[in-house]
Design a protein around this nucleic acid. Structure first.
Length: 879
RNA sequence: GGGCGGAUAGCUCAGUUGGGAGAGCGCAGCCCUUACAAGGCUGAGGUCACAGGUUCGAUCCCUGUUCCGCCUACCA
């Protein structure tokens, strides 16, 4: 009743089938009342606008490996999925769609617009969720969360209000980054810096009472808002001007010349114009010197009424007009080429405008302190540890966080302004009257909160906080967070601050920072470069398991991943190899009952593979526990391909053919199936689909592989395993001779092995059949001493001399060359070790174990050398 | 300006308390051996970027240099 399965593994259907079954059986659902130890993770929520890219694929593959692994280890696993509302990004997408319809959000109005976004959310959120399912992600979908869910919104309000009452959230006029295209304020983090070629303009400002001062600026259009000119007090060039005033050209306004040590005398002309309402530095300077602020642009980056004749122009137009006008007046002294760093919006790339504006802020200092300590004390651990430094760096210099956004999609700020007394009321529940004067004429702040404000609460808002929930008790703090380094500041740091503040405990124990994926040439993947590898296409083409395994294999800590399609193809081949291993096993078993463990019936080969399996299990387990997914993947790969398939299966083929008796056949069938079963379990977290599929075909399995426990390390039989390694080396030696001497693989050879070691002699005699089989020998003699065969090629391994007589067909030249080369290698090795042992400093200072090891090595090498030389001598005699 | 990371086989990368340099892919030769040609067997290939230092001993620790990459920053 041998089972036959297809010759080539076809992933597509298998994957869909199994994912559906896992869901049906609720295998991903966590039980907060379970008595198993908890293991929890929250997913980094993808944007609702998102579509699965390789970054998601890597992030979620690694999480899924961890989740599945822990589940099989007997943990009560909660992997909580969710989606982020992604304020600006989503609003942009919907606005673009409106524009295509000839509509605009302003024309539509806030309420209708938000309705429209919700509708779009309903349509599009399925996309990325289905893609995560396609990837095999074993998230607990019954607990899927969305950052705008009512419970999560409640958490946002609660946090905002509590911070406000403690004075950690405040509202004030400060200079902030404003994106004129998205028409909203941004936090410092949401501004990216791009180098751009520009000009440095030298403009002459006439000084009242005679003379003039030339300032250098990259932004001539903001001169309309200048409220001072600053020079360094140590600058002798301008000493005479200090305290005087200049007349601002074009607008003819009088502004003072002030002294400030922060002015760099070397740069430009050493004189700088101060525009407090449109420059971060100048804003600080103005505060220091008590200068007024004058806004000359509105939020759309158009010049406003304060710009006089230039009102209504865009900032670009204004720059042109102003430089022209200055030129006409002979006040533009110089334009030099200059490369500057420009702040651009991280969502749309538009140049941001620093603008004085009334916004809400979080006072971060008091929150940052415990967050720094938590990492210092080790209650939160970054993996790899090197990221802690990055974290400290940023947290140590953190500035207040601008959290209000002038958009409509997001959590509305729970603040109401009173029309009568002007006071603000901040409450978790919508108030009906002003808390100060009781007036009912109150209106809610139109702004919404930074999306990252709600993301910061993710690890506990998703568990039901501020309600006390069972989940919150069991699964908080979460065990690990998986993310990439680019959002350590945006997200990780803020989660730590909020978790500590509101839960009194870190949101997670481990922060695993994984790689960023680049293309094969090391370039960041981007649609415009056309070098994007689409994970969905790869999954269709090579199978999800192949993609997952590739990502895991390349997930070395602290390094970016350069991915090429050929890699995925390679691991597709691995999947097929595994498939054929199963195919072979199923073709050969007669459906016999599984043999119980019977150590006395185990052959050396059996013990070897069991030992290797056990050590693979150990290595995979410890690697995963240390987030070394690449090491784990390589260990299981190498075991399956190079030990189980290359050696064990080849070793037992005669048994399975019944050549060594019916009892042995039955026994080895059972053993092979057991080994495959455990191997599949070990591989399952990496390749969930193919392992589940194969597992289902194996005899004697009741439940699915997901429900099976992971085998524990069994220890094995190290001595027998080592004996088997000797056998393998002898086989390799014969194979090598065959290849080197150009003997066809099929030609039958004889072999004589000489060793004085009784235990080796025993092993070789016992394994005669296996050696003959795999080295393709007609005869194998094992001898302690005696005449070495003439006309024979030979090799030395583990002190065993392996002779392969070639009956007058030995190519003497070739064999001489082969032995000579071998001897050369050996000699250089010997001289290295010799030199080391000859060094008295070494023998005196090195640990005795090391010295002994070197001595042992030397004697082995010497022994081998003697034997090789004797062989070379014999061959010379043949000439 | 400050900080971090990297430089090991043709390519991509491992190398975890300093003690015999590894893998995958690629390449070369031979093989359609009834699991798999998406395969098997065998093999070639490396002054571990450079220069110093510590040490009996350095790919590994320290210093400096060169070249890449990234993060961060208020020289307008």
């Amino acid at each position: 009743m041998a089972v036959t399965i297809a010759k080539v593994y076809a992933p597509g259907e298998v994957e869909r089938k199994w994912y559906a079954r896992w869901l049906e059986k609720n295998l991903f659902t966590a039980d907060p009342r379970s008595d198993k130890p908890p293991f929890s993770m929250v997913i980094p929520p993808p944007n609702i606008t998102g579509s699965l890219h390789l970054g998601h694929a890597l992030n979620n593959t690694l999480q899924d490996i961890m989740a599945r692994f822990k589940r099989m280890q007997g943990y009560n696993v909660l992997w909580l999925p969710g989606i982020d509302h992604a304020g600006i990004a989503t609003q942009n997408v919907v606005e673009r769609r409106l524009k295509e319809e000839g509509m605009s959000r302003d024309a539509l109005g806030r309420e209708k617009f938000v309705e429209r976004v919700w509708k779009w959310k309903e349509e599009s959120e399925g996309t990325i969720i289905n893609q995560l399912k396609r990837l095999g992600a074993s998230c607990d979908w019954t607990r899927l969360k969305f950052t705008l869910d009512s419970t999560l919104s409640m958490a946002v309000r609660e946090v905002f209000v509590r911070l406000y009452k403690e004075g950690l959230v405040y509202r004030g006029d400060y200079i902030i980054n404003f994106c004129p295209r998205c028409s909203t304020a941004l936090s410092d983090l949401e501004v990216e810096h791009a180098e751009k070629d520009s000009l440095l303009y030298h403009i002459e400002y006439p000084v009242k009472g005679g003379g003039s001062i030339v300032v250098a600026t990259t932004r001539p259009e903001t001169m309309l808002g200048d409220t001072a000119v600053a020079v360094n007090p140590r600058d002798s060039r301008y000493k005479a001007f200090a305290g005087k005033a200049v007349e601002l050209p074009l607008v003819k306004r009088e502004i003072p010349i002030i002294e400030d040590a922060a002015v760099d005398m070397e740069f430009g002309t050493g004189a700088v114009k101060i525009t407090p309402a449109h420059d971060f530095n100048d804003f600080e300077t103005a505060r220091k010197h008590g200068l007024p602020c004058l806004k000359v642009m509105d939020l759309n980056a158009r010049m406003n009424e304060n710009a006089g004749a230039y009102a209504g122009l865009t900032r670009e137009e204004a720059r042109n007009r102003i430089t022209e006008d200055l030129k006409k007046e002979g006040l533009l002294k110089k334009e030099e080429k200059y490369r500057l760093l420009l702040g651009v919006c991280y969502r749309c790339g538009t140049t941001v405008e620093p603008t004085l504006s009334k916004q809400w802020f979080v006072k971060v200092g008091p929150l940052a302190k415990p967050a720094i300590e938590a990492v210092e004390e080790g209650s939160i651990r970054f993996v790899p540890k090197s990221w802690e430094k990055t974290y400290f760096e940023w947290m140590g210099n953190i500035r207040d966080w601008c959290i209000s956004r002038q958009i409509w999609w997001g959590h509305r700020i729970p603040a109401w302004y009173c029309e009568d007394c002007g006071r603000v009321t901040v409450e978790t529940r919508d108030p009906s009257r002003c808390e100060a004067c009781g007036s009912e004429k109150i209106a809610q702040d139109p702004d919404v909160l930074d999306t990252w404000f709600s993301s910061a609460l993710w690890p506990f808002s998703t568990l039901g906080w501020p309600e006390e929930t069972v989940e919150g008790g069991v699964f908080y703090p979460t065990s690990a967070l998986f993310t990439s380094f680019d959002i350590i500041f945006f997200w990780v740091a803020r989660m730590i601050m909020m978790g500590l503040k509101f839960k009194g405990d870190a949101p997670f124990r481990d922060v695993y920072i994984h790689a960023l994926i680049r293309d094969a040439a090391g370039q960041k993947m981007s649609k415009s470069k056309g070098n994007v590898i689409d994970p969905l296409v790869m999954m269709e083409k090579y199978g999800t398991d192949a993609l997952r395994f590739t990502l895991a294999s390349f997930a070395a800590q602290g390094r970016d991943i350069k991915l090429a399609e050929e890699r995925i193809e390679g691991y597709r081949n691995f999947a097929n190899k595994l498939w054929n291993l199963a195919r072979f096993a199923l073709m050969n078993i007669e459906g016999a009952p599984l043999s119980p463990a019977a150590p006395e019936k185990l052959t050396r080969a059996d013990k070897w593979i069991m030992t290797r399996l056990s050590s693979a299990i150990e290595e995979v387990s410890s690697s995963i526990d240390n987030y070394e997914f690449d090491t784990a993947a390589k260990a299981v790969y190498s075991f399956i391909w190079h030990e189980l398939c290359d050696w064990y299966v080849e070793l037992i083929k005669p048994d399975l053919r019944g050549e060594r008796g019916g009892e042995r056949k039955t026994f080895v069938e059972g053993l092979l199936i057991n080994v495959i079963k455990d191997t599949l379990k070990l591989l399952h977290p990496f390749m969930p689909f193919i392992t589940e599929e194969i597992y289902s075909y194996l005899p004697g399995v009741a439940a699915g592989i997901m429900e099976a426990g992971l085998p524990g390390p069994a220890g094995g039989y190290p001595e027998d395993a080592d004996g088997m390694e000797v056998v393998m080396e002898v086989i390799r030696a014969v194979r090598n001779i065959r290849t080197e001497m150009n003997i066809p693989p099929g030609a039958a050879l004889d072999c004589t092995a000489f060793t004085k070691n009784a235990s080796l002699t025993g092993i070789l005699r016992e394994e005669e059949a296996n050696i003959k089989n795999l080295a393709r020998l007609r005869e194998l003699r094992v001898s302690g001493a005696g005449e070495r065969p003439k006309q024979a090629a030979f090799a030395v391994t583990r002190g065993i001399e392996v002779f392969v007589p070639l009956k007058g067909h030995v190519d003497i030249e070739k064999e001489t060359l082969r032995i000579t080369r071998e001897l050369e290698k050996l000699s250089s090795e010997i001289s290295d070790v010799d030199k080391k042992l000859g060094n008295r400093d070494f023998t005196a200072n090195a640990p005795s174990a090391i010295v002994e090891k070197e001595r042992g090595r030397l004697s082995l090498l010497m022994e081998k050398k003697v034997k090789l030389e004797a062989g070379a001598e014999r061959i010379r005699g043949l000439r």
